[in-house]
Design a protein around this nucleic acid. Sequence first.
DNA 1: TCTGTCAAATAGGACA
DNA 2: TGTCCTATTTGACAGA
Length: 197
Amino acid sequence: MAIFLPESSSNLDLTISVPGFSSSPPSDEGSGGGREQLKLDMNRLPSSEDDEELSHGGSAPPRKKLRLTREQSRLLEDSFRQNHTLNPKQKEALAKHLMLRPRQIEVWFQNRRARSKLKQTEMECEYLKRWFGSLTEQNHMLHREVEELRAMKAGPSTATSASSRTMCPRCERVTTAASPSLAAPAKKTLPLQDREH
DNA sequence: TCTGTCAAATAGGACA
DNA sequence: TGTCCTATTTGACAGA
């Protein structure tokens, strides 16, 4: 189980500051724009100063929300495609590579799993809705057939449409030839029991 | 400026 | 004990 990492980290265009290390002088600020600078600050790893800040009593500073850079997101997505969970070593390696805390990697994967599960659930929901609609329609058709058959039984002279009927060999149910889709409903791939008839 | 959406982060319980 | 899941909170951001 290998985590995805780019061939060369030199491709990365991460604008992240490392604790105790300033990669760019303050004069560079103008080139990136205010938002970039904000992103840079938020993405930095927690420094010992931060820890001190937190450990000091008093009110905790409002938490700054990290926004992952495009590159970070892309790499995380790539890793997620490889594997939906990470072992501690992989987490550590990815964190180091992206210059994030392992906890942030962990949280990202948790949220990502939740998102994909939600997406999956939504898709299943849509499918079940459609299936329900199709079953309802079949149910109506069958009710109509029952009525017609009852009418046939009551008075043979009124049974003009009997010639267009066939018997389903599997369930021995009478179906109309005009609705082959009902006689042989499309097979669904849903993993449910008792799907047919 | 307000509001809705997205996603990072937190809390707390379950499980191996 | 560490990891996962789920629910929830919260901050950033975009569009009306």
